[in-house]
Amino acid sequence: MATNESSDNKNQLITLMLQTIENFVPLETRPAPEGMAIYLYELKKEILRQNPKFKFINSYNDYIFRILTLLDYLDVSKEYDTESHGKTVHMICRETRDIKRIDPLWKINPTSVIEFINSTLSASARK
């Protein structure tokens, strides 16, 4: 229960931090960068007090973003070419090997990644 409460609290703090960024614009209502810097500092300090290891981009998220970028690099507009294609696939292999060395049991959750991609797309489409 205590873990859930702490997790909920952290979740709220992260939400607050992201909403702060979200409210940066329109410009007329945003505080000066110095004021905002102090506010973000306080929020982040509280998040790290609850979990000193917390990172907005941890190794796993970093890996996912890198993989998505690399998958976009794969050029299929031309005929299949072993050399250029091989370089990107090799980088994907290396990134995957590195992340699985941190935790051999960790797996990509394709559904969650797709949901995330779709949520950002639909968030834009809603406008």
């Binding site: 979740n11 992260i14 939400t15 941890n58 960790w106 969650s112 949901e115 949520s119 950002t120 968030a123």
Partner: peptide, 17 residues
């Protein structure tokens, strides 16, 4: 910013951590 989507996406990783 889709705050809810970001949190949802981040959580499995937070749990792993």
């Amino acid at each position: 910013l889709d705050v809810e989507g970001i949190i949802k996406f981040l959580y499995p990783t937070l749990n792993t951590q």
